[in-house]
């Protein structure tokens, strides 16, 4: 390493200034707004009525906010379990090295590259109560008697959303876990086979311990992605019915852009910022412990 030159400082400075201006400033501005009353009338003014922590206490007292907070937590946990679980199984299967394995694995990623809005729209059509292919397949298999109102019944809407969002996220987990799997020395498996360990035991006693740190990092990334979820939900259910699929970012958007209570939207946003930052800090720590350099 040489002494940092002016060129390197400029190279580092430009993107950092850009990030501070486009993300740092909005975060601070958001905090300021969350203690103000911001309406369409005073939106462009700098001096707005200071309301202290009213936006926060109002939100906390609001049963809808509490429901949405609960939804957010459930949504994140289910998605982490589903995406990382299925992604790990898929990665382990494709690691077998049968003909066409890498091509098939690549094909799966096609789902991940799609815009979230397209994914939500396609699943909305598949989950349609009448003429939807999900209900058709389930009834053809004899699993349901009458059509399920997937998206219009608060009892099933979250399940539908979870299925769509887990589907969207599986390839990402699979690719990252697959990378971790390639780092396990093959001799370990050979030795275990000689000792008579079957595939399930080898997975349990060799694979899982070896990839545990990577799995934790992937779980953090999936949690972050689920806390960011917006497009799929917006296309699929708009958070409804009766807020049964609403999550914090969507509630914040609705407060700001549908109710025009920007201060409340900012306060809800601040809650969610804290949650995302919390997970992100854990993720950053796992990176540091994995990489001594």
């Amino acid at each position: 390493m040489r002494r940092p030159s002016w060129l390197l400082r400029l190279f580092l400075g430009l993107p950092m200034i850009y990030l501070l201006a486009m993300i740092g400033v909005p975060i601070v501005y958001n905090l300021a707004m969350s203690v103000q009353e911001v309406t369409l009338g005073n939106i462009a003014a700098f001096a707005r009525p200071f309301v202290g922590l009213d936006n926060f206490t109002d939100s906390l007292a609001d049963p809808i906010f509490r429901r949405v907070l609960h939804n957010s937590v459930v949504f994140v946990l289910v998605n982490v379990a589903g995406q990382v679980g299925i992604g790990t199984i898929a990665a382990a299967c494709f690691a077998g090295g049968f003909p066409g394995a890498s091509t098939m694995r690549g094909l799966l990623l096609a789902a991940w590259i799609l815009p979230g809005l397209v994914v939500g729209t396609v699943w909305k059509w598949m989950f349609a109560t009448q003429f939807g292919v999900v209900n058709f397949v389930l009834s053809a298999l004899g699993l349901i008697g009458t059509p399920v109102h997937w998206l219009s019944d608060p009892a099933t809407s979250m399940t539908a959303l979870n299925i769509a969002h887990i589907w969207f996220g599986i390839p990402f987990s699979m690719i990252l876990v697959a990378a971790a799997l390639t780092n396990i020395p093959g001799e370990l498996y050979e030795a275990a086979s000689l000792d008579g360990a079957g595939p399930l035991r080898r997975f349990r006693y060799i694979t899982l311990p070896a990839i545990a740190p990577a799995l934790f990092a992937v779980a953090c990334l999936v949690a972050i992605a689920s806390l960011r979820a917006f497009d799929v939900i917006f296309a699929l259910t708009q958070g409804g019915p009766l807020n049964s699929t609403n999550v914090l970012p969507l509630l914040s958007y609705q407060a700001s852009f549908q109710d025009f209570e920007f201060g409340r939207g900012a306060a809800i946003g601040s809650f969610a910022f804290v949650m995302v930052f919390g997970v992100a800090l854990v993720y950053v720590r796992t990176l540091k412990s994995e990489q001594p350099a």
Binding site: L19, I23, N30, L248, Y253, S256, F262, G265
Partner: peptide, 22 residues
């Protein structure tokens, strides 16, 4: 800082960004 900024949901930044651009 970059790792942390990278994770923020756009839907949350939309409120302040909208007002700043307005």
């Amino acid at each position: 800082a970059v790792l942390l900024l990278q994770v923020l949901p756009e839907a949350l930044l939309a409120t302040p960004v909208f007002i700043i651009f307005k």
